[in-house]
C-alpha cells in the first residue's frame, strides 16, 4: 500500500514537472522565434552580411548549427559570430564589411565548402567552376595551354557569389565631388587586410597575399579606390566619366550587375561613414530599379 502511494506521488510529481517543462519550452520557443524574426524585420537595411553562399535567411536560421567552421577557415577572419547584443540571431556567422570584407583571398569560397549543413551552399560554386573549365576545354587543347584552369575556376566561382549589392551615396563620394585621395584609406589604426588588385608584383603578376590596409599607400587624382580594388573587376564596378555641356568633367563609380556584394569597396572607402555600402542579401534589380 505504502509503495503504491509512493508511485502515485511520483507519477503526479512527474506529470507536474512535465507540464512545467512543456510550458517553459513553449515559452522559450516562442521567445526565440519572435526575437529572431523581430531582429530581422527591424533591421531591414542591416549592415551585417551573411557569408558567401548563404541560403535564404529563413532557411539559414535553421540550417546553421553554429559550429564555427566557416569562422575558423576564413583566411582574412572576415566571418564573425553574432552575439546576443548584435542585430542577428545569436551564434550565426556574419561579415561586417566595413571592418573586414571578404576579398576572396581563399580563392575557393572555403567557408561554403566547409559548411557541413549547407547553410552556406557550396554546390553552386562547384558547378560554376566546373562549367567554366569545361567551356575552356571545348575550345580545344590549344586554349588550355595559355590558360591556368585553376584561375578560370576561381573567377567563375567568385562571379556566382551573391552577398548583396553595393550602393553609392553620391552626396559624400569623393569621386563625385571631383576630389582625389592620397595616403592610407582607413588610417593607421585600421586592422583590416586586403589582397590588392591595383598593385602588382614587380614581375607584373597578381599579388596573392592579403596585406594590412594600413600598410598600403594610394595616390589618386580622382579617388577610384572602390573601382580599382574590386576583386571582380569591371563587370562589377566602373568609374563613369561624363563630360558636361560646359566642358567640365564629372566622375561617378557605377555599380553594375556583376557586383557580388563582397564589400571590399565598403571597407576601402576613405570617407567616414563609407560612401559605398553593401545592401545585404538584395538583388541588383531591387536596389537599382
Amino acid at each position: 500500500m505504502a509503495k503504491e502511494n509512493k508511485t502515485n506521488i511520483n507519477r503526479r510529481q512527474f506529470l507536474k514537472s512535465t507540464a512545467i517543462a512543456a510550458a517553459s519550452m513553449a515559452a522559450i520557443g516562442a521567445g526565440v522565434t519572435y526575437i529572431q524574426k523581430y531582429k530581422r524585420d527591424e533591421n531591414n537595411a542591416q549592415e551585417l552580411l551573411r557569408p558567401p553562399g548563404a541560403i535564404d535567411e529563413d532557411a539559414f536560421l535553421y540550417a546553421c548549427i553554429k559550429c564555427g567552421l566557416c569562422v575558423q577557415i576564413c583566411p582574412v577572419h572576415a566571418i564573425k559570430f553574432a552575439g546576443i547584443n548584435e542585430d542577428l540571431a545569436y551564434g550565426t556567422p556574419y561579415i561586417n564589411a566595413r571592418e573586414q570584407a571578404c576579398d576572396f583571398s581563399c580563392d575557393s569560397i572555403q567557408c561554403a565548402e566547409t559548411c557541413p549543413t549547407a547553410a552556406l551552399y557550396f554546390i553552386q560554386f562547384k558547378e560554376a567552376g566546373l562549367k567554366a573549365i569545361e567551356a575552356v576545354q571545348q575550345q580545344g587543347p590549344e586554349a588550355l595551354k595559355n590558360i591556368n584552369p585553376f584561375e578560370v575556376q576561381v573567377v567563375a566561382m567568385k562571379k556566382v557569389t551573391h552577398i548583396g549589392v553595393a550602393k553609392l551615396n553620391e552626396k559624400t563620394c569623393l569621386a563625385v565631388k571631383g576630389k582625389g585621395f592620397s595616403g592610407t584609406p582607413r588610417g593607421e589604426n585600421f586592422n583590416g587586410v586586403l589582397r590588392p588588385q591595383s598593385i602588382k608584383n614587380q614581375d607584373g603578376s597578381k599579388i596573392r597575399k592579403a596585406y594590412p590596409l594600413k600598410e598600403q599607400k594610394y595616390e589618386r587624382e580622382i579617388c577610384d579606390l572602390c573601382v580599382t580594388e574590386c576583386p571582380i573587376g569591371e563587370e562589377a564596378i566602373t568609374l563613369k566619366k561624363t563630360t558636361n555641356p560646359d566642358g567640365s568633367v564629372s566622375y561617378k563609380p557605377n555599380v553594375l550587375e556583376g557586383c557580388t556584394g563582397c564589400g571590399v569597396c565598403e571597407m576601402i572607402c576613405p570617407t567616414e561613414p563609407a560612401s559605398i555600402v553593401i545592401e545585404a542579401g538584395k538583388t541588383y534589380e531591387e536596389v537599382y530599379s
Binding site: 522559450i28 522565434t33 529563413d58 536560421l61 535553421y62 546553421c64
Partner: peptide
C-alpha cells in the same frame, strides 16, 4: 526525455534550432 522530445518538436514547429540557442 521529455525535454529531448520537446526540443525536437519545438524545432519542427518553429523551424529553428531553438535548443542550440540555449
Amino acid at each position: 526525455y521529455v525535454f529531448w522530445a520537446g526540443f525536437i518538436l519545438l524545432a519542427f514547429f518553429t523551424q529553428r534550432l531553438v535548443f542550440e540557442t540555449l
